[in-house]
């Protein structure tokens, strides 16, 4: 009897098992679950998902822009290299052209000089021949005059010719 009383006291303090409580608990829990899911955790989860997506997309964008920048810098570097090469080539070309022109000018000058020299030589020869001819003529008449005056003796035309030719030869050797 004693044991039973004690048991019933505890039982009373606990309130015991009540089917109504259990059903109510189930009902409250399910309603609470649906309500907080809809009004609290759902939006929070959505926001977290949104943030996750945002961060992911930001990272992606950053990665992309970094790759773009890298590409652009590489391109710029390549262009710079190309430009440098072109400039180098231009300088080389100009140098070559200069050297060639120089040579051409020198060649032309040399040819011109040669030509002038040759012309001068030809002129000189010409003049010389002309002078020789004139001298020949002059010496011919002079010698006739001198001979006729000095020797005062008639000589045949054949002898005179021979004499003149001898003179000329002498003069030519002297020249």
């Amino acid at each position: 009897m004693q044991a039973f009383t004690e048991y019933s006291t505890i039982y009373a303090a606990l309130g015991g098992f009540h089917v109504g409580d259990m059903l109510m608990q189930l009902f409250f829990f399910i309603v609470l679950l649906l309500l907080v899911k809809k009004f609290a955790w759902g939006p929070v989860m959505d926001m977290m998902k949104k943030r996750e997506d945002y961060v992911a997309s930001e990272i992606e964008t950053a990665e992309k822009s970094r790759a773009d920048a890298e590409k652009a810098s590489k391109e710029a570097l390549e262009q710079l290299k190309q430009t440098k090469q072109e400039a180098q080539k231009m300088i080389e070309d100009a140098k070559n052209a200069g050297t060639r022109q120089e040579e051409e000018i020198i060649q032309a000058a040399r040819a011109e000089a040669d030509r002038i020299k040759k012309a001068a030589q030809a002129d000189i020869q010409n003049e010389k021949e002309k002078a020789l001819q004139a001298l020949q003529d002059k010496v011919a008449s002079l010698s006739v005059l001198i001979a006729s005056k000095v020797i005062e003796k008639e000589i045949s035309a054949q002898d005179q010719e021979k004499l003149i030719n001898d003179y000329i030869k002498e003069v030519g050797e002297e020249l």
Binding site: G15, D21, M24, Q25, F28, F29, L32, V36, A40
Partner: peptide, 25 residues
């Protein structure tokens, strides 16, 4: 059978959880 104190406390607990969660969200 209902233990009314349990029913009351379940209701209060649910209410507090709900209100706190909604305020937090």
């Amino acid at each position: 059978d209902f233990n009314m104190s349990n029913v009351l406390m379940m209701f209060i607990t649910s209410l507090i959880v709900f209100v706190l969660c909604v305020l937090g969200a």
